[in-house]
């Protein structure tokens, strides 16, 4: 029997989202096939990796991922510039962890100033993230969205508990928006619906189904992403068609495997290489499940994933 390639044509496609302004603006999403299945459809854009930068020094990051930034991470502006100029970051994700009530408890005004300073120092697209404190994120992200008005940033993350204020701020200031729910396709769909019912354009959304690290629930994120992508393509489900985010670095660099020194776990081998590989492998698995936007920390992990992306397209 002769071989006939069993190609698929899907009824749906992923929205293409563009971020930033000017020459360094970027697009991601836009494909009408499963990840990297260019043999049967259009894959107009590659996944984008943003470097994570914090408003406060990364004292809570493990040693091995603090090191590459040790001379710049005292200040978010220097840090962001370093990512753009030295590491050639295509995008930057500024996480305002310092606003968390249990951390430095910085005010929304402080956050707005940091956003302005960082924006004036860089020309690549900016993702602005809160501290993941549902209540505090509302005022912080409103201030941040205003401070970055018309810069076409991504604001996040809107969750069930706070989406109204954050989505309104993103809309009023012409930004894109991350909608995050907890590892459940139905919750994710429901949140996207709620946000679009407010009048927010679904083509300006990014879905975050919640990341998990390799060995720590990766299979849940992987399968929720695959299911979301299949719903978008095979059922033409419009609420599942925004591109997806994998917020990799934050989840990877808190687990034991990225920290334990080789002296404690000799069978696990070199700690630095292990940590970098952990972040890169988590990211590489999730782009195969459908993530188009990633937030990562270690420069070597980022370059490894960019290299594999080059080979995948």
């Amino acid at each position: 029997m002769a071989f006939v390639a069993p190609k698929e044509t899907y009824s749906g496609k992923v929205y293409q989202v563009n971020i930033g302004t000017g020459a360094n603006a970027l697009s991601f999403g836009g494909e009408n096939v499963l990840p990297f299945n260019a043999f049967e459809g259009a894959v107009p854009n590659k996944p984008v990796i943003a470097y994570e930068v914090q408003d406060v020094p990364p004292s809570d990051w493990p040693e091995n991922v603090q090191k590459p930034y040790s001379s710049v991470s005292g200040d978010p502006v220097t840090w962001a510039k370093f990512c753009q100029e030295t590491l050639k970051a295509k995008a930057i994700a500024l996480r305002l962890v310092g606003t968390h009530p249990d951390r430095e408890n910085r005010s929304p005004e402080d956050a707005a100033k940091t956003v302005k300073d960082v924006l004036s120092a860089i020309n690549v697209p900016l993702i602005i993230l809160g501290s993941n404190h549902a209540e505090k994120d509302s005022p912080v992200l409103i201030a941040a969205a205003e401070a970055s008005k018309d810069k076409n940033c991504i604001i996040g993350k809107a969750q069930e508990a706070n989406y109204k204020t954050i989505a309104a701020a993103a809309m009023a200031n012409n930004h894109k928006l991350i909608a995050m729910s907890e590892l459940d396709i139905n919750l994710s769909k429901q949140l996207n619906i709620l946000i679009t019912q407010m009048g927010f354009d679904k083509e300006r959304l990014i879905t975050d189904p919640m990341c998990s690290a390799l060995g720590y629930g990766l299979e849940y994120t992987y399968s929720v992403m695959e299911r979301i992508r299949l719903a978008a393509l095979t059922q033409n489900d419009l609420t599942m068609q925004p591109p997806m985010l994998a917020d990799v670095g934050m989840y990877v660099w808190k687990i034991k495997e990225t920290q334990a020194p080789e002296s404690e776990v000799p069978l696990w081998g070199n700690a630095e290489e292990r940590g970098i590989a952990w972040e890169a492998t988590t990211a590489a698995s999730l782009i195969m499940a459908g993530a188009e936007l990633l937030i990562m920390r270690h420069p070597k992990a980022v370059s490894a994933v960019e290299k594999v992306i080059e080979e995948l397209v």
Partner: peptide, 28 residues
Amino acid sequence: EALIAAVGIAKYASIVVLSSIEKWKNLV
């Protein structure tokens, strides 16, 4: 190499051949 192997593991390979097996890589 580890990431290419990851592509194979996720996408339907029954055998992946590697050139080196450092401990950190094995764990991953």
